[in-house]
Simulated assay, not measured.
Amino acid sequence: MENSNALILLRKELHQHPEVSGEEIHTAKRVLSFLENYPPDEVITEIGKTGLIAIYKGKKTGKTVLFRCELDALPIEETNVFGHRSLNNGVSHKCGHDGHMAILCGLAAELYHNKPESGTVILLFQPAEEDGSGAQKVLLDTKFASIQPDYVFALHNLPGFPMHQIVVKNETFSCAVNSIIIKLKGKTSHAGEPGKGINPALAIAAIISEFNTIIQSDITKENYCLITAIYTKMGSKAYGVSAGAGEIHFTVRSDSNSQMRRIELTLENLAQSIAKKHKLTCKTSWTQGFQANENDKTAVTFIKKAATINGFDLLEKDKPFTWGEDFGLFTQHYPGAMFGLGAGINTAALHNPDYDFPDEIITTGVSVFHQISKQITNAH
């Protein structure tokens, strides 16, 4: 396997220079300069604006498999003080995308040294996963039109799970997530004569309490639905004025894409009817939507076999993860699967300011991805 020290150095370098969603220009350049040591047969740059694709072709025609990682970091100030801490204020790799990139670069090295026998292996370094826009940007890019994968795969590191453990699940792996913005418009008036205006306060209160009745927060039961109030704003700090407008935002989670569509409609209708009752106009919109990752059974079988061949501990999870991941858009278009890679029981949680990707699991990820690619491209 590619010298793991080189992959660790790359990972730490990526960690030091994080970039937020849609701005990963230097991150993509760093990855590209690493790949120049293991030249792909074809490179596509600026896919989905800042993304990158490396293609390794087999000697004969055959199946095409795509592996995807993410380029972006989060707008979180790092609290770690180690040598490779983030040099960009207020931005850091708190989801481990630096590690995911290192894994895909390690896979590139393996594919360069051991060409697939047949078919094609595509490595996608995808931008803007964190805000839910990147997968769509890549899929809509005309440069992606020529790529028709038979299977798509991705992994995510999992703090709280034993290091090197491979976590698999058939059907929904990660939840559908969408965020609703509800804007209410009434009429301002004197605070001493609120009856002469239309204040949105009671409507906001009613929306919060009505939405609350729809929550079913136990993911082990059917109709899982989590609704979290995120932000609200009403009126202004002018104490003689009764507020005439307000807005409220929620994130919504469900364990299937079809169930999510139903919930979205229910919430929109509820907000509209409450607004109408309080004589307010209401505008609803959605932002940062993530499709549920719905894993294909055959793809999951490839992962299980790859883990077993490599002697890694395998966990079959019975319930989905509650976070969203925009790879779900790929699994809607192509058969594929996302799996988890244990990052250690005591590793800080994802999105925490003290999180850091554990370098020990880079080669684990490379081994599983490479073994999957061998199964699909008949390489031995």
Rank of each mutant, 00 (worst) to 15 (best):
Q375N: 07
F161G: 11
Y224A: 09
Q288L: 13
I372F: 06
A28W: 02
D255W: 13
G83F: 09
G106S: 05
H164L: 13
L52I: 07
K304E: 10
G58T: 08
A343M: 13
G342V: 12
A6C: 13
L7N: 14
D313H: 12
F339Y: 09
I215Y: 02
S373Y: 15
N199P: 08
F302S: 00
T266L: 03
T377W: 15
I47P: 02
K221E: 13
F330H: 00
N178V: 03
I372A: 03
K196Y: 15
F290R: 03
L35Q: 07
G99P: 00
T213E: 13
F330S: 04
P18I: 06
A203P: 02
S256G: 12
P159K: 12
F302G: 03
H84V: 02
V152P: 04
H278K: 06
G96L: 10
L104S: 05
G235E: 01
N114H: 07
L7Y: 12
I166S: 04
F144N: 10
V91D: 07
E325S: 03
D356A: 02
K283P: 11
A245G: 08
K29R: 10
G195T: 14
F312G: 10
T172V: 08
L104I: 05
L270S: 12
A206Q: 12
A102R: 13
V152K: 03
I76A: 02
K187Y: 09
C95E: 01
D356C: 00
A154S: 09
L184S: 01
H164T: 11
H113T: 13
C95D: 07
N346D: 13
A306G: 05
G96N: 00
A349W: 10
T79C: 09
G344Y: 01
T331L: 04
N352H: 06
F125K: 15
E193A: 15
L66R: 03
Y239Q: 05
G244W: 06
G289I: 04
K283W: 14
A243Y: 01
K187V: 08
V168S: 09
I182C: 08
P335N: 02
N346Y: 11
L226Y: 08
L155C: 07
A379K: 15
A379F: 13
T232A: 10
E316I: 15
I47Y: 01
G160C: 14
N88V: 12
P200R: 09
